[in-house]
Design a protein around this nucleic acid. Structure first.
Lengths: 328, 328
DNA sequence: ATACGCCTTTAGAACGTTCTATAGACTGGC
DNA sequence: GCCAGTCTATAGAACGTTCTAAAGGCGTAT
């Protein structure tokens, strides 16, 4: 089945030069005359030669491979993967993917990336402890994406959760809302930060900060929604879009209109939020842009910049149809 | 920063044995005593040794790596990735992922998997031509997942679209529906098959097969939904769940009740369909099970079984809340 | 002429594994 | 005691590339 591939040696013999020279030419490295360059390239094309990346990688420690771990459980990670590929291509790197899946913990995903010879790691919302992360960071540059409390030994590219919540509260406040509730993310990454930010922002306006236990999924939002109805606020800030959709659905089932009776604000500005019949107002972290920044950061670390840094971007508000003036 | 990783040699020195012996032990190959096995394993753990897959790969053609290409645009591919990981682990293989993303065509994804040294390829709904696929299949086992018209040189593991549509029509027919419409998948893979199956199944019952142009997304369903309302059928078979949700939303906006006024049946039994407040009746392809089968097929091909085969599974019906008796 | 420098080319040693062949140390049968 | 057989361990050659050091050719300054 698998007729063995031609090697450098084969090309060298065909062109009547040495192995090393072919290597130089295949890499477009300086040190060969234009005449032989042409001759060798012709021979390589003739034989259908493709360099063996395994051997190439083995010899030169450079693999030009960036490891990216994502989770199959979070749909918006796909957008990040997308953006990361684009960013890496621009900088001349390739991306190796590894998923955190059911029965496949993050450590496993990371080990797998390490095995493939990645030069740097980008982890989306890593759930590892700062110590574990530091352990990896001692071996190679590690970028934490969308989580910033990861210690000083690794880079992070994240979104300012406090600012995001502030923008959310400001928006609702300016629409006249005073009774605003927050459905938090439960155990999810970033949930404590957003919850604390909500409490602080509400307090600074002299308002009561009502927090309902929620979670990252529609089901969590649904549960929180029915709890909210026992004492309906005029506006809800949800942990994320999926949670917001759950809350909304719960309200809808009870005959409540959004935003006439109650406003709902999501977080993430995910694909769901943008659906024409959803039109959920949301806080956008601009994940693709963050992904790009993470890739850039990884490459910068590899190509010189020595110290870890924490890059924080400010999210912005996307007003759609689910937030409006306070009722009454 | 990057203290170079420990090598086989380092472990050998630490344990006071030869390189070759460590190699044997790391591979769990026969030829070492239990005592040294323990000693070496301890030393390896101590040093945090992990075999360098590049070197391993270079030397032995075996990489025990299965390449899986998926698309960031299809949320349910994540479920497949999940199941594939699980299946591969059981068979003692690892999975290398490569995404088809924006600006990253399938050929690129495949080349990347090849470069990583995968021994076999599993492609989810490949959009490559049978000729291109055959080209790859000449070099290594290639399994097409969820698409079966790929020629005889590669394996396929797919779901019987005709049977799925038949089951859908049967279900609605048995509920008394006669005016059934199909919203197709437009340019999406499998759309022609399902459309044709619908037409044939309706014809065999002497019914008029009304087909509306649709697509794979909610937006497509939404458009199709408003078109359907000009002459409302009693039931709709959508190309997939997302499309079905769009149709549903369109009906809901018009004040139509589901399933009292009109039944809706999805396809894929995706996560969306299972949401507690959605409860969409759907045809399940059991994608995770198919993924498992694809992995098994890939491994079988690698470990002996020589000829390509086309495995077709019959989907099944999952009745939830959106299909009911014909109105009136 | 000799020395120096540049450009092109090459031989040969890496890289970290696995594989083949073989050596040594036991066992047990005679 | 000696040979065959088995088990454990090792040395050294691969694998296909890149890298280092140096060789050879040739022109120019000394």
């Amino acid at each position: 089945m698998t007729g063995k591939r031609p090697t450098l040696m084969d090309v060298a013999e065909a062109a009547g030069v040495s192995r090393a020279l072919v290597s130089i030419i295949m890499r477009d490295a300086p040190g060969a005359s234009d005449a032989t360059r042409l001759k060798v390239q012709e021979a390589a094309r003739e034989l259908g030669y493709r360099p063996d990346s395994r051997a190439r990688l083995l010899r030169s420690s450079r693999t030009r491979l960036l490891g990216l771990s994502f989770s199959t459980a979070h749909a918006f990670h796909a957008e990040i993967v997308d953006a990361a590929y684009a960013g890496a291509t621009v900088r001349g790197y390739d991306i190796a993917l590894s998923a955190v899946a059911n029965g496949r913990p993050e450590t496993r995903a990371v080990e797998s990336l390490l095995d493939l010879g990645c030069e740097a790691l980008i982890l989306i919302s890593p759930s590892l402890s700062p110590e574990e992360l530091a352990g990896y960071a001692a071996r190679l540059p590690v970028i934490s994406l969308l989580r910033d409390d990861v210690g000083d030994s690794l880079d992070s590219v994240s979104s300012d959760d406090h600012a995001g919540i502030r923008i959310a509260v400001e928006h609702l406040f300016s629409l006249g809302h005073r009774r605003i509730a927050h459905v938090d993310g439960g155990q999810a990454v970033s949930s404590p930060q957003r919850r604390a930010a909500f409490q602080s922002e509400m307090a600074s306006r002299g308002l009561d900060a009502r927090v309902i236990a929620g979670g990252p999924t529609e089901e969590d939002g649904l549960r929180a929604g029915s709890e909210l109805q026992q004492d309906l606020p005029t506006a809800v800030v949800a942990f994320n879009d999926r949670c917001a959709l759950g809350v909304w659905e719960s309200f809808r089932a009870a005959g409540l209109r959004v935003p006439e009776d109650v406003s709902i604000l999501g977080y993430d500005d995910s694909q769901f939020a943008r659906l024409s019949y959803v039109q959920l107002s949301s806080i956008s972290q601009d994940a693709p842009l963050l992904a790009r920044a993470a890739v850039d950061r990884a490459v910068d670390r590899l190509e010189g910049s020595t110290s870890a840094a924490h890059l924080v971007r400010t999210p912005h508000l996307v007003v759609r149809g689910t937030t409006g003036e306070v009722p009454g």
